[in-house]
Design a protein around this nucleic acid. Structure first.
Lengths: 144, 144
DNA sequence: TAATATACTACCAAATCAATAGGAATATAG
DNA sequence: CTATATTCCTATTGATTTGGTAGTATATTA
């Protein structure tokens, strides 16, 4: 059940952008350094976030990335979907025809319930909500 | 977030045993056939389930596997732990020292919340509870 | 035009996962 | 006692995924 680095890095990166909202574009290089992520690898993740419409890029000198929408309009389940591919626990949860036993499968109930639990949690969280929550518990990244 | 086949197969197998409770030992070969799982692979999973104390094995002809405790005493989070290794979403959730940024990381809040959501769901479900639930919704495996 | 960024595409290495192989040990049946 | 049925153990292999590199093209600023 461990999340892939794709998702972990990607969420960390977009959180940097959320915290940077309103300021100048944030360069990939800077995010990579702050979060200790391979810049080249992060490039791919940003591409995914971009084509899903979460971030906007500015090319050339003084360029970088910014959020494409307000941080309180970006829900984590969307971000996860974009990065993780599928957040589902097993194929048969979404595709009943994946397995003939699906209809009569007690196990499938588990996969479905776990899936829902995750989805519900992620859907209830926006980037902004997360930042606020972190701030309250005194846990926000300050880059001095 | 897809569950490994280890977990999926393992849970399906132990559910077969739960449904077989009170009857003669169920042979690995039979479980493998019913669930369409490689018998040799399932052997390894049963070994794990056995050493974790969930199932008991009977060797020799007419042997097989049976549940080692009542199905309503086996919680899914335990079974998952045994099969999945760690059900955690990211290392830093359980080990704060895993990453220096942990204390000030908004992302870590997400991993933790998702982790809790999963754990809570699994902890609330026993094998028996699952079977009952499946029966109510008319979704139980009948092997004619 | 020089410097700075992102964009795109292909490739590679290591790790993990899923499965296979081959026998050894143990119990039952006849 | 022998043949058969079954679990037990350990090693190996094959496939897939993951995480990361490399190099070049394109856009922007100054």
């Amino acid at each position: 059940m461990k999340l892939s680095t794709r998702t972990r890095y990607g969420v960390r990166a977009i959180l940097e952008l959320a915290e940077n909202a309103g300021k100048d574009p944030l360069q990939l290089k800077i995010i990579a350094r702050r979060q200790d992520i391979s810049a080249k690898y992060l490039e791919q993740l940003m591409a995914a976030l971009k084509s899903a419409g979460f971030v906007r890029s500015i090319r050339g000198a003084k360029g970088g990335y910014v959020l494409a929408k307000p941080a309180d309009k970006i829900r984590l389940n969307e971000v996860f979907h974009c990065l993780e591919g599928s957040v589902t626990t097993a194929e048969c949860v979404e595709d009943e025809n994946y397995c003939q036993r699906a209809a009569g499968c007690a196990a499938r109930l588990v996969w479905a319930e776990v899936h829902q639990a995750i989805e519900k949690e992620l859907e209830a969280t926006t980037l902004q909500g997360l930042i606020d929550k972190a701030r309250v518990s005194g846990a926000v990244n300050y880059h001095i």
